[in-house]
Simulated scan of single mutants.
Amino acid sequence: MTHTLTGPRFPIYKSSPELYEAMMALSTAAAKDVEPELGELIKIRASQMNRCAFCLDMHTRDARKLGVSDQKIDVLAAWTEAGDLFTAREQAALALTESLTVLGDHGVPEDVYAVAADAFTQRELGQVIAMAVTINAWNRINAAVQTPPPRR
């Protein structure tokens, strides 16, 4: 039996407002000391990988409002092929985000972690990790209840 998306399965954030509040608190905490533009790239990349249309819609719009170029947003799914379009810090954060989004049998590869640890202070690295973990949680919640993007 297949399920056709006609809307959310149930309004999880209305049914469980504590969940929404906790996720918002985690999102706010994770965003501290991370450049907003970098944060949006992290959120978009994880959301692409997790196929979360709701989050992709939200974070691509937010990124554009912050001045992230259309080109960066357009090629983000293939950032490793984009030459120097992305900064070293962005590349380190994106590689770490991808590793955290699809954890293999051995977790985050040592080389990915080492590049990120060189690109960020310990505080920043913790925040980047927290941001990737947080957007993955949002993506999984929205996937479970099939939250569609709002119609514009």
Results as ranks from 00 to 15, higher is better:
residue 53 A to I: 01
residue 32 K to Y: 07
residue 41 L to R: 02
residue 64 R to Q: 14
residue 19 L to F: 11
residue 119 A to E: 09
residue 19 L to I: 14
residue 39 G to W: 05
residue 140 R to I: 03
residue 89 R to G: 03
residue 77 A to F: 11
residue 37 E to K: 15
residue 11 P to E: 13
residue 9 R to F: 07
residue 109 P to R: 06
residue 46 A to S: 15
residue 22 A to Q: 13
residue 13 Y to L: 12
residue 41 L to W: 01
residue 27 S to N: 13
residue 81 E to G: 06
residue 104 G to E: 08
residue 4 T to L: 14
residue 5 L to M: 11
residue 55 C to H: 02
residue 61 R to D: 04
residue 121 T to S: 15
residue 69 S to P: 13
residue 68 V to D: 02
residue 14 K to D: 15
residue 55 C to V: 07
residue 102 V to M: 13
residue 128 V to W: 00
residue 32 K to C: 07
residue 148 P to E: 03
residue 60 T to D: 03
residue 48 Q to F: 12
residue 29 A to E: 14
residue 61 R to C: 00
residue 36 P to N: 08
residue 85 L to Q: 03
residue 87 T to P: 05
residue 3 H to Y: 15
residue 104 G to K: 05
residue 88 A to L: 10
residue 83 G to E: 03
residue 77 A to Y: 11
residue 90 E to I: 02
residue 86 F to S: 04
residue 145 V to E: 01
residue 114 A to R: 09
residue 37 E to I: 01
residue 66 L to K: 10
residue 110 E to G: 04
residue 122 Q to K: 14
residue 145 V to R: 00
residue 128 V to C: 01
residue 69 S to D: 10
residue 109 P to Q: 05
residue 35 E to I: 07
residue 34 V to S: 02
residue 15 S to I: 09
residue 10 F to P: 04
residue 138 W to Y: 13
residue 31 A to E: 04
residue 22 A to V: 09
residue 43 K to A: 12
residue 136 N to H: 05
residue 75 V to H: 11
residue 121 T to F: 06
residue 3 H to T: 14
residue 20 Y to E: 13
residue 100 L to M: 15
residue 86 F to N: 04
residue 24 M to C: 09
residue 135 I to Y: 01
residue 94 L to W: 01
residue 102 V to I: 13
residue 42 I to A: 05
residue 132 A to C: 10
residue 90 E to P: 05
residue 115 V to K: 12
residue 135 I to R: 00
residue 15 S to C: 12
residue 34 V to Y: 03
residue 114 A to M: 07
residue 67 G to A: 08
residue 151 R to Y: 09
residue 122 Q to P: 08
residue 81 E to D: 15
